[in-house]
Nucleic acid binder design. Structure first.
Lengths: 112, 112
DNA sequence: AATAGTGCTATAGTTAGTCAAGCGATGAAG
DNA sequence: CTTCATCGCTTGACTAACTATAGCACTATT
């Protein structure tokens, strides 16, 4: 196990597969946002997890956190350059999804 | 905000963010594999979860399962056309990772 | 005849994510 | 001036998701 080839794709997948991470990135590609605003935008993520993800992304240098004022609390999160570069990944997913992903709405409407 | 905005990217992310899913796809991009072989290739995924993911991917039509013989058990999993199309997504992640993802710091012996 | 391998499944246990509430301060609305 | 909502979180209890291990019914290899 020690002599394992270091594989960038593998590491990237490890990060991107964490729940909500890609949703967060996608939301931030539209511009900086506050904590709660971001939570509302991606829809359904609880603050605990959201903070976890943002901290991780910040640690990796993909997201930058800026505190504008402590009280009243005002913070904004935005993508760092390496985060913005994920646009190409999101785009690839978008393209793929439109061409190949079956619509769940159709199944839901026709639910058996 | 609509009652439900159907968004392909969102749905795609929901699928791709499931743990091991992208690893599975990446492994299968190199060709069909048996169940255990696949498990070994992606490394660390337990059979229960692996089966769950494969069933889901099959249900979505991204993966095809072929039983060659029941006893002794021999099955192979391979990507359907819409699964193969995910190559572009994996490629995008690969490109991004090489350029922007910081190394986990364990090894930095190699340079050029 | 013993061993290792196949594709799983079952059960129990651990980890990761969720829900709800709340805090200290503030600005807006009544 | 007094609610009320809002900001960015934090905490603690809960639950869903994932993991580890064992085992089955068999075969091919040794």
């Amino acid at each position: 196990m020690g002599t394992f080839d270091h594989c960038p794709v593998h590491d990237a997948i490890q990060v991107l597969q964490e729940k909500w991470t890609m949703h967060i990135v996608r939301a931030l590609l539209d511009g900086p946002m506050g904590f709660n605003e971001l939570g509302r935008t991606i829809g359904g993520c609880n603050p605990a997890t959201l903070k976890l993800r943002l901290d991780h992304l910040e640690e990796l240098g993909l997201v930058a956190r800026t505190v504008h004022s402590y009280m009243p609390p005002r913070t904004s999160y935005e993508l760092a350059p390496s985060g913005v570069a994920l646009q190409q990944v999101i785009d690839a997913i978008d393209t793929w999804a439109r061409e190949h992903l079956p619509e769940p709405a159709a199944e839901a409407a026709q639910a058996s």
